[in-house]
Structures are given as structure tokens and as C-alpha cells.
Design a protein around this nucleic acid. Structure first.
Length: 195
DNA sequence: AATAAGGACACTC
DNA sequence: GAGTGTCCTTATT
């Protein structure tokens, strides 16, 4: 049901971000990644350095009031999002927490895997990247700047942009992972081996 | 102006 | 050495 969808979204997000599902386990760096990601996903006002140097444990111990003190604009919303993550992993402990842990802490993710994960979540990312023909693996990047930004968050590369991301995609041409479709179009690529 | 292609070099694992 | 990230030149849309 709805709860299942939430759990899947969280699992996808922690895979994309390479952070644990349980916020208590987050390092200060993990907290920043989650923060940037959540800001972007829900178009929250930028929190800037309001939560810098905070580990997951400290973050989880903070009240909604303290969130609002750090960030008067979006602090309450952010606290609500963290609450979802907390309760999701609390429920996870009762049955399949080892599975989530293993799927969320895979160290390096390749760019082509990252793009595929975004494509498989059209509900969350369909405004940024979507299939033109899923069977053939043809997809279009609808918002190059945002996709690059998300990739930058994942890799801790704040200076990431589409110029550099696309250069990495081009490296896939000779490797036979991604190519340009037969009819070349701007911002359209094709997986050589569709799902 | 934005995107595409690919060479060159630096960096991290 | 693989997989980028960064920078750059040139061409195309």
C-alpha cells in the first residue's frame, strides 16, 4: 500500500545517495547529502549551513522546535521528512533490516546505474529524466541542470554540471553501455542493453 | 546559447 | 588500470 511505496522511495533514495536507511547512522556528510536531496525533491528553501557538523544521532534527537530555530523557513517541513525516515527504519527493524542495509550501502555507483535508477522512479524523477521508449532503452534528460545537480550530490561534487556529466556519458559510447539513438536528438540517449 | 564530440590530464579507488 | 571529473577546442543545432 502507501507505506510500501514510502519504503521503496526511501530505499531508492539511500541507494542513490549511498547513505544508510536509518538516519541515526548518518555521518555529518550523510546528513548534508540527505538535506540537499530533500531540499531538491520537495523544493524546500535552501538550509545552507544551518545543519552543518550535525551527525545523524544528534539530528534525530532534535525536536521540531529546534529544527525551526536552525531554519525558520523550512525547518518544520524538514523535520517532518526526517520523521518519515525514522519511522520507516523503525518498522524495518522488525523484519528485513539486513536486506535494506545491504542494498543501501553499495559503495560506488556508476553514472549509468544512477540514471537507470532515476528512470525507474518516474513518479519522483519523471520531470527530470524519462523514457521515450523503455523497451529500446531510449531516454531523454528533460532537465539537464537538475540531473547534474543530483549526480553531484551523490558523488560529493558540488561543481558537477551537464557539461561534465555528458562527457562521462560519452565515455560510455566506446564501452557499449550508452549510445546516441539512430536519430540523434538533443538530450536523448539510449542504453545499449535495455532492461 | 545550449548541446555534442572527443582529446588531454588529474584524481581516487 | 577503471571510472570518472575537469578543462578545452571545434562543430552542430
Amino acid at each position: 500500500m502507501v507505506l510500501g511505496e514510502v519504503l521503496k522511495d526511501i530505499e531508492t533514495a539511500c541507494k542513490l545517495l549511498n547513505i544508510a536507511a536509518d538516519p541515526v547512522d548518518w555521518s555529518p556528510g550523510n546528513v548534508q547529502k540527505w538535506l540537499l536531496w530533500t531540499e531538491h525533491q520537495y523544493r524546500l528553501p535552501p538550509m545552507g549551513t544551518a545543519f552543518q557538523e550535525l551527525g545523524g544521532k544528534e539530528l534525530c534527537a532534535m525536536s521540531e522546535e529546534q529544527f525551526r530555530q536552525r531554519s525558520p523557513l523550512g525547518g518544520d517541513v524538514l523535520h517532518a521528512h526526517l520523521d518519515i525516515w525514522k519511522s520507516a527504519s523503525a518498522g524495518e527493524d522488525s523484519w528485513a533490516d539486513s536486506e535494506v542495509d545491504s542494498s543501501c550501502s553499495g559503495q560506488p555507483i556508476h553514472l549509468w546505474q544512477f540514471l537507470r535508477e532515476l528512470l525507474l522512479k518516474p513518479h519522483s524523477y519523471g520531470r527530470l529524466i524519462r523514457w521515450l521508449n523503455k523497451e529500446k532503452g531510449i531516454f531523454k534528460i528533460e532537465d539537464s541542470a537538475q540531473v547534474a545537480r543530483l549526480w553531484g550530490i551523490r558523488k560529493n561534487r558540488p561543481a558537477m554540471n551537464y557539461d561534465k556529466l555528458s562527457r562521462s556519458i560519452r565515455q560510455y559510447y566506446k564501452k557499449g553501455i550508452i549510445r546516441k539513438p539512430d536519430i540523434s536528438q538533443r538530450l536523448v540517449y539510449q542504453f545499449v542493453h535495455p532492461i
